[in-house]
Design a protein around this nucleic acid. Structure first.
Length: 751
DNA sequence: GATTTACGCCTTTTT
DNA sequence: GGCGTAAATC
């Protein structure tokens, strides 16, 4: 296969780039990944680099996996050495598992995820008897992570961020780091920071890494943060063979410390860099590109580039306003059904700003019998039972891992309750030792009841057994033994409903299987735990799934034939947290751009003024997202942005909330009955009125008409609204309840 | 010490 | 509407 044949001139230029730094500014859908993949293949095929000297870095495991597969497809499998294709984090873990002893950690360190971090902070707060109200763990962790992402050590925190509570935060930041170290544990941010630390302080490690990874390629460069940038600088320091690909319009991780300046300053950081722009888009229709481009053009912080495509103009973009979140979901489900009927092989996605929005879509798709996958809500590795068992493993391999130990110490219940664990943690704190050691030393503590002492001794003995076993038994076998020994299944069966217990047991079995499989692939137990810590739900997104539900963030780098960008409302998208600061707003706009450019053929934008928040009807009607107003009207149908039933405050400006009171929802023809009693009155009214007469002899559907649906049975039409070329019907079915259907394909039979 | 119930908080986005 | 923590009860 000719590696260069299928490339356009710019892509080819990038792929053929020789040594030295290069920056590829690649617009959405312009073949970013393609360039990296082909360059890897080109370097190897040409003999310019040996595979083992190549390191390609991505942001998600999924992207890494896909890249690996595509390289294999180009080169064929079965070569002796492979290029290393990894995420920043997994690359760092790889380095640290080998080198971290140099900075005083043990090789079998634990990796703390967000949940572990939260537990640790809470524990610290508890020990210091600080009320959580004034110091929300989330908030604290957010600020610690912010500091870490900007490379600000605890020692200088208060100095760098002077504020009322700076000293307190510096104290907590320090305590948190100390406790991580004592637990022989690293959080996500530490993985990067400690790698930088090792590379900076130990020239021999740096030299070896520089020789090992002579060619470095980075995907999504616009999303690198400071520590990632440092890692890159240190690795590339000698050979300067850095090849980065990015798009400043798709920088959406500022909140995580991503620094857009990394891409804007690349030429300065790597002198003599070659810049290549990829502006031809291969993914979307011209219409979609124009719409997305018009939105992002409102940003000022960009280098500016214009995407073009040879693709057809394609369909107009469709906008749809619904009267509730529920009907938004129903309308989308109906569109999906049509789309799948017309093109059974299409891949579709519903994208939304926050995960909380997925629920309605899940419910309705389920109801419609449309198979789908949800990305990101509660991932496999985030399930409680899976985390419990991983904590058991962690405790066995790294007994100093306090958070893991405290998680399992009384799960399932074994008579070690709050009083006892509090004594343990207090002892550990006083002596400055991990909890496992405090456990050993507290066995005879007279402050404990005999019963508690006995329970502790028993747990201690079992734990020692696992620690010993961990040395010579596989992760799968150890896990299986632990599950049996502690009676984990029994706990689930006893605690949860039969159905829930069965689900959880299935997950447990799945985990055991995964552990065994990992072992059979030759991975160590630590490899297995690493993968569990660093994997995300996204990685499990099945490429064959027809319909996917995911956040816009998760969708970056993916593409779909049809995209529904839902919840296009002020406050939601852009999110109200981001609407004030200009740079935050620009990030929201880029996010919107990312969402829109995921679509190949057709883009839908949906919103509703009446979305429930926290299960309550909001007192204020939502406004359409300002991004909808930035869209060229001639390319979009159904763009009804005025809210007729909103009584506007005369002085109101965009961005303020408009109040409309309870009259709001009954002011147009989409009025819906709220209760059964109301429904009866409503139906009576409809039937006695002129609607009830239906179109004499005509087949045309009218409000109030009784109809039969193949699936839902008999019902009565509550409303009929034009949308595009079709009519949207709201029908109350006596068996199935209220449904919203599209007339065009609902195959309704008038009665 | 464990289990059940009430209440309050909540929502960005992710490795 | 849902989850996790805190009080109340067994």
């Amino acid at each position: 296969m000719d590696i260069l044949a299928s490339l356009n001139p710019q892509q080819r230029l990038a792929v053929e780039h020789g040594r030295g730094p290069a920056l590829v500014l690649a617009g959405a859908g312009s073949g970013k990944t393609r360039v990296i993949v082909h360059r890897i293949a080109y370097l190897i095929r040409n003999g310019a680099a040996r595979p083992e000297h190549i390191l390609a870095v991505t942001f998600t495991n999924k992207a890494a996996q896909e890249m690996r597969e595509r390289v294999h497809a180009l080169l064929g499998r079965g070569r002796t050495a492979e290029p290393l294709i990894a995420t920043f984090h997994s690359f760092c873990v790889r380095v640290l598992r080998r080198e971290i002893h140099r900075i005083g950690y043990k090789r079998d360190f634990s990796i703390y995820d967000t949940d572990d971090q939260r537990r640790l902070i809470k524990q610290i707060l508890e020990e210091e008897r600080r009320p959580e109200k004034e110091t929300a763990p989330r908030e604290i962790l957010g600020r610690i992570s912010f500091a870490k992402n900007h490379n600000i050590p605890a020692a200088v925190f208060a100095h760098r961020f002077p504020s009322a509570d700076a000293d307190l935060l510096q104290h907590l930041y320090t305590a948190y780091n100390d406790r991580l170290r004592r637990a022989n544990a690293l959080d996500f941010d530490d993985l990067l920071l400690k790698t930088v630390d090792v590379l900076e302080r130990f020239p021999e490690v740096r030299d070896r890494c520089q020789e090992e990874y002579r060619f470095i390629l980075v995907d999504e460069y616009q999303d690198t943060n400071r520590p990632q940038y440092d890692v890159l600088q240190l690795l590339a320091g000698k050979h300067q063979n850095v090849f980065v690909v990015g798009d400043e319009d798709q920088s959406i991780y500022k909140f995580r410390g991503a620094n857009i300046r990394n891409i804007l300053n690349f030429e300065k950081d790597f002198p003599g860099a070659r810049i290549i722009k990829l502006e031809q888009n291969y993914r979307s229709t011209q219409t979609i590109l124009d719409v997305a481009g018009a939105v992002v053009a409102n940003n000022t912080e960009r280098k500016g580039k214009t995407l073009w495509t040879d693709n057809a103009r394609g369909d107009v973009v469709t906008c749809y306003r619904s009267h509730s979140a529920r009907s938004e979901a129903e309308w989308i489900a109906a569109q999906i059904r049509t789309a799948l009927r017309e093109g059974p092989d299409s891949r579709l996605a519903i994208l939304y700003r926050t995960n909380a929005l997925s629920r309605n879509f899940e419910d309705v798709l389920m109801q419609y019998g449309i198979p789908f996958v949800v990305v990101g809500s509660v991932g496999f590795f985030n399930r409680m039972e899976v985390k419990d068992l991983l904590a058991y493993l962690r405790a066995a391999y790294n007994p100093e891992d306090d958070i893991a130990l405290l998680r399992i110490i009384n799960t399932p219940p074994r008579g070690i309750g709050g009083t006892t664990t509090e004594l343990l943690t207090r002892n550990a704190l006083d002596k400055g030792v991990p909890v496992c050691q405090a456990l050993r030393e507290s066995l005879q503590d007279t402050r404990l009841s005999v019963r508690a002492q006995r329970a502790l001794a028993r747990f201690h003995e079992t734990l020692d057994g696992w620690i010993a076993k961990a040395r010579d038994v596989s992760a799968g076998a150890l896990l299986e033994e632990i599950i049996a020994q502690v009676g984990y299944h029994e706990m689930l069966k006893q605690r949860d409903s039969a159905q829930e217990a069965a689900d959880r047991i299935a997950n447990v079995d799945e985990l055991v299987r995964a552990a065994y499989e990992s072992g059979e692939r030759g991975e160590s137990a630590l490899d297995f735990l690493d993968r569990a810590s660093l994997s995300s739900e996204l990685d499990q997104l099945d490429a064959n799934a027809r319909v996917a539900l995911l956040t816009v963030h998760s969708a970056k780098g993916l593409e779909f034939d049809v995209v529904f960008l839902a919840g296009m409302e002020e406050g939601l998208f852009p999110h109200f947290q981001s609407r004030d600061a200009k740079e935050d707003l620009e990030e929201e706009r880029r996010l919107c751009y990312v969402g829109m450019t995921r679509a190949r053929r057709k883009l839908f934008l949906t919103w509703t003024p009446h979305r429930r928040r926290f299960g309550q009807d909001s007192e204020t009607a939502a406004l359409p997202s300002r991004f909808l107003k930035e869209v060229p009207a001639e390319l979009v149908e159904g763009l009804e942005l005025e809210t007729p039933y909103t009584m506007m405050d005369k002085e109101s400006e965009y961005g303020q909330e408009w109040h409309y009171g309870k009259a709001g929802r009954s002011a147009d023809d989409t009025e819906q009955p709220r209760s059964l009693a109301e429904l009866r009155t409503y139906l009576a009214k409809l039937q006695s009125g002129k609607h009830g007469a239906a179109a004499g002899g005509g087949r045309q559907l009218k409000t109030g008409m009784r109809v039969r649906h193949a699936q839902f049975g008999e019902g009565i039409i509550l409303s009929r609204e034009r949308t595009g070329n079709d009519y949207k019907l709201t029908i109350f079915f006596s068996l199935a309840g209220r449904k919203t259907l599209m007339e065009g394909y609902a195959k309704l039979q008038p009665l």
